[in-house]
Design a protein around this nucleic acid. Sequence first.
DNA 1: TTGTACATGTAATTCGTTACATGATTAT
DNA 2: ATAATCATGTAACGAATTACATGTACAA
Lengths: 186, 186
Amino acid sequence: MAKRVLKHAILGLLRKQDMSGYDITAEFTKEISQFWSAKHSQIYTELKKLLDEKLIEQYIEISGVKLERKMYKLTEEGKKELAQWLMHPEQIPETEKDTFALKVYFIQYIPEEKILPLFQDQLDQREQKLSELKSRYQLIFAQREEKMGLAADELGHYLVLTKAISREESYVDWLKKSIRFIRQKR
Amino acid sequence: MAKRVLKHAILGLLRKQDMSGYDITAEFTKEISQFWSAKHSQIYTELKKLLDEKLIEQYIEISGVKLERKMYKLTEEGKKELAQWLMHPEQIPETEKDTFALKVYFIQYIPEEKILPLFQDQLDQREQKLSELKSRYQLIFAQREEKMGLAADELGHYLVLTKAISREESYVDWLKKSIRFIRQKR
DNA sequence: TTGTACATGTAATTCGTTACATGATTAT
DNA sequence: ATAATCATGTAACGAATTACATGTACAA
């Protein structure tokens, strides 16, 4: 009994508009990449499976003279499947994999003088990411939130962007606290 | 060029003391499970690979009359490999997979009346987890942090537990804010 | 004309889970 | 006795990445 998350992620993307495998791959480099992504090789394979399952249909669009874009469109079955998946609550996972946290668990085996640089590197990366996310937020949602509301099709985007920001803020806070704790403890 | 995280997680666990595959499997249900875990089938397979690579050695311990426990011990090579991995900083991943957040991205396709129950379910689960983590913290680290310091071999444990708590607090905060935002917006 | 982006696929391999399979030890 | 836990493994499958492979369109 597998979870088939990618399957439903693709159905979700196609729910808004017909897309090619290339388009779907591109979507997975945008906002949603904070929470799910896949390489084109996996996407093209998954699209074939979804065709088999009759959750999507294919048609061809010509770009330029002869380049065939294979466009995919949700079937009624596909819409139903997506709705079912979206409405069905799931157990939260016991494990949320994080290599840095795993290394920190083994901190006693890291030479004293390498510890703070490791934390500092992680902090730099996380702050960089946080600042990018905040820029995006400013660009898209600042002002609007209060004045006019959001359009219905922007709510999901808004919520996941605030989620990503919240996650990175929490990461940065913990890193800063940890750095202080390690410094003070020496 | 794979990352072999499990490989290094096992080396890390064996750094403290010799263990069997069964013991390692059990460790992955404790604190560290918040950030990494694996099933016994994968662990036994990985242990064979590590033997091949001469990063660990095997010896037999008898439990009771004839039950053979296969114990594993780091080699010098294994210690070096672990130290290298621990000291080497890595790029943070672009994607931290989260099925709930993915569903939220598609919130516009969830029937209005199902949205808040979904968030409430997630909130209940996250608060439950947070409360378990805080209990563990109380049990193990409360009081100590300030009075006496931590033993060297407790620092990693302390930091990852505070990390897990921070992560879940952030999740809960975002869920509460989102619920308010969705309510207010109706 | 040349490089970048568009566009689609397969193959090989690794990582991870579930299912299958077996047996010993210990506590009730 | 018998159930729970200890203990180790393989097989099958699914999920995911990397590498291989090819060709078109468009802008500088």
